[in-house]
Design a protein around this nucleic acid. Structure first.
Lengths: 238, 238
DNA sequence: GTCTGGCATATTGTATACCAGTCATGAGTA
DNA sequence: TACTCATGACTGGTATACAATATGCCAGAC
């Protein structure tokens, strides 16, 4: 189900048309729509089970159950829903432990990405990271939390991307999506934002200096710090 | 997809029947059978495309296309096959670059696992790692490559497992399965085995000493060493 | 009044029919 | 001989019908 870009031939002629990603299969559309719907759901607000009805969804989308089922199967393998035979399909709520495990795995992936960046990224690419926080450095710090949170996530996602390692990117993408779902309630308390920005700046400096081990360590500890924070204060999970 | 046992009532009378394990959905069976078949295929021997026919497989399994398709969809999301609409479903051969990326991601996951082990595993668990190489330490080193390769993979898989982090375990499992497919042709040249065993012993010692940073570093560099080896010598990929 | 057993209903699992592209083939033509 | 192109078999995508089973309701027994 990857929309991975085909590697360009080094002899490719000028037009360089992007390999237009025409994936109009109902299955894929249903997958995207469902995933967006689930992510936008704010499922941690309530504790009631959230059930998804295949047939109703198929009707709403105006398609048959088959592509909906295939989309559901994928979402299940990605940990977003859980299918109970002859009972229903339920949206999954991660436990605190699972969230911590995800953050830990993310720490592993992103710290490796940082390592790779110091070895292969261009100066311009690294400079791009600094620009992301421009609006926060001068003028008032952080407009409001939501905006910061967006930049925050984009920062980390960019680090992963700059690694140019598709496997890392894919694995982290999934974790990030789960993160986004609990972001509203978990991450981004006011007092963490300051510390977070300082961490980010230190990370950028280490990357610019091509300090491989230090960049790796800073990124890892930054993420593990979040895990610890969740461990301590996120009792509303579970 | 869990066959988790229900908690037994403390007042349960004698019969104590186990909760009959009925998890044999055709979909899951087809998935397992297909995955085993693909892994056992030695796909890197030839360069010809290997096509899988939904209808034929369904016939061979004695079931309909639907569960076969659902199994295929999962295998596709895991990167084992690639479905081309109206053309066929093909077994995926990883390129050298992809293999290196997988090894790099694996290095990230396993080095984090090592870190966690130094903090949470018991001495007994770590001692278990040493036992795995007992037959190789005294007596002749490595009976033959295949046997060593099995122990090798089991060693790394055990490290991941000892982290007690389900997310790490799941992500690594997939990578390992892909590794196993190229193991026959890629990893385990004779001269690497010596170096490898020494690395493993150093890793075990670091874990035993609870030397967090050192264990992480050793595990990471061991894996990245393999990546480098593949980069240099595995031209038969691609 | 409480409990048991069966039935109606709801929901996913599986099978099958049909559809729309793709590609190999081979007849036909220059 | 070489090339074009129509044709039909083949393949995955989709829709729908059928099967299996979990749950809730209700009648009837005790």
């Amino acid at each position: 189900m990857s929309g991975r870009a085909a590697p360009r031939s080094p002899l490719a002629p000028h037009p360089a048309l992007a390999p237009i990603d025409v994936t109009p299969s109902f299955k894929h559309k249903a997958y995207t729509a469902l995933k967006n719907a689930i992510v936008a759901m704010d499922i941690y607000r309530s504790r009631d089970d959230i059930r998804l009805d295949e047939r109703k969804l198929a009707q709403d989308f105006g398609i048959s159950r088959t592509p909906v089922r295939e989309a559901m199967a994928q979402l299940e393998s990605e940990g977003f829903v859980r299918s109970v035979p002859r009972r229903g399909i339920y949206v999954v709520r991660k436990t605190k432990r699972e969230v911590i495990e995800m953050i830990t795995a993310w720490a592993a992936l992103e710290s490796m990405a940082a390592r790779l960046i110091t070895q292969t990224a261009t100066d311009d690419e690294i400079a791009g990271l600094r620009k992301m926080f421009a609006t926060f450095e001068n003028g008032r710090l952080r407009a409001h939390l939501d905006e910061y949170s967006d930049v925050n996530i984009e920062f980390h996602q960019t680090i992963i991307r700059l690694s140019r390692n598709e496997v890392l990117i894919d694995l982290a993408e999934n974790l990030f999506t789960h993160m986004r779902m609990i972001r509203r309630t978990t991450i981004g308390e006011q007092d963490r934002a300051d510390r977070s920005i300082r961490d980010h700046m230190n990370i950028i400096e280490a990357l610019e200096a091509r300090a491989t081990d230090r960049a790796e360590e800073l990124v890892r500890d930054h993420a593990l710090g979040l895990a610890e924070h969740v461990e301590r204060y996120a009792d509303y999970l579970d």
